[in-house]
């Protein structure tokens, strides 16, 4: 295990940002969010969790897939080259780290590999970051439901714990070890530090979020069985205004739209985050829309995460990070909806 004094942290950020793309939390007008770091001083470790999830590092909100140029009837088109320098994402909370594995099952699974997700994922070392285990969890969080603790290092390449004066950095994978070994200026942590690290992980298990007994296989069947209970779905989604904020904040919402944008003779085929709660998500060219009503679309969202994803990939597509509840302008809470459905 390695460590670095808190006042030396910007040195670590500087070196990482020089080597390749570094994504880390930055405080902006909209709160703290992951950004590509240009100025090491921008990085902050003083946040509960980022407003938007870290998924944008591997799955940007808008991403060029193919760029093309059309001249005299001939078209030159090239897939957009992907970053080849190794990247680092630093400061990912334990529940968010788990979201990457859930997204991997989709983007790398079911027989088709998404090259845009894969290249960024393969290329990026994940430095997880324990929540402050002496503080209470945000009331919106419910990651305990999935068995995650506030300081679980699983899934991170390097896991980072903050103490009063230092940051402890423990490698969890070969990739993480390689990164730490390459940072010569880090101090070697002592036995006392190891103890603090282990205690933090343990204390993290004791930080309680909201939690419910949800068995993936059981809830998957349950939701399909209450699918036709329109009264229930209309009641729980009555307030929804179909703004899509929950899906934009979500670390495991992966639906995207593909669209062409062209100016004069040059353009690109892009993909954008989309939301199943939007009116035209399933609007067909014929004018037919299988899910014209908001309750039908919100039901799709819940069933996708807690039922269809379980059937397809064996796990619930939710990590209990609480973002959807925090960002919802009308206080809809997916945790309560699933819990209520479970008890129907």
């Amino acid at each position: 295990m390695k460590k670095i004094a808190i006042d030396q942290f910007s040195e670590l950020v500087k070196v990482l940002a020089e080597r390749g793309p570094l994504y880390a939390p930055v405080k902006g007008k909209e709160g703290v969010n992951f950004q590509a770091i240009k100025n090491p001083a921008d990085v902050t470790l003083d946040f509960y969790n980022t407003v938007l999830s870290p998924k944008s590092v591997f799955f940007p909100q808008s991403e060029d897939m193919i760029r093309y140029r059309i001249t005299h009837g001939a078209t030159e088109a090239q897939p957009v080259p992907q970053e080849s320098r190794p990247a680092v994402i630093l400061g990912v909370r334990p529940c968010d780290v788990r979201s990457f594995e859930i997204m991997d099952r989709h983007f790398l699974g079911a027989g088709v590999i998404d090259p845009y997700w894969k290249s960024k994922r393969d290329n990026t070392t994940v430095i997880g970051f324990a929540f402050d285990v002496s503080a209470a969890a945000d009331p919106a969080d419910f990651y305990n439901t999935f068995g995650y603790g506030a300081a679980d290092p699983e899934g991170s390449d390097v896991f980072m714990v903050r103490t009063d004066k230092a940051l402890l950095l423990k490698s969890m994978t070969d990739r993480g070890k390689k990164l730490l070994d390459s940072l010569g200026f880090l101090q070697v942590a002592g036995a006392q530090d190891e103890k603090v690290f282990e205690e933090t992980v343990k204390k993290g298990k004791a930080v309680r979020t909201r939690s419910a007994e949800i068995n993936p296989q059981v809830i998957a069947k349950k939701l399909v069985s209450v699918f036709d209970n329109g009264e229930f779905w209309q009641k729980v989604t009555m307030a929804c205004i179909a703004c899509g904020a929950c899906t934009y904040g979500c670390p495991t919402c992966y639906c995207f739209d593909i669209s062409d944008e062209m100016l004069f003779k040059e353009g690109s085929r892009k993909r954008f985050w989309d939301a199943c709660t939007f009116t035209d998500f399933t609007l067909e060219a014929s004018g037919h829309n299988p899910r014209p009503r908001i309750f039908q679309r919100y039901r799709q969202k819940v069933c996708h995460k807690y039922s269809y994803h379980v059937d397809k990939y064996g796990c619930i597509s939710c990590v209990g990070c609480g973002r959807c509840t925090r960002v919802c302008p009308v206080n809809i809470d997916i945790f309560s909806i699933v819990d209520e459905a479970n008890k129907l």
Partner: peptide
């Protein structure tokens, strides 16, 4: 159904 990617990724 409305489709975009055609390969089971875009979730539509």
């Amino acid at each position: 159904m409305r489709m975009k990617c055609g390969i089971g990724k875009c979730g539509r």
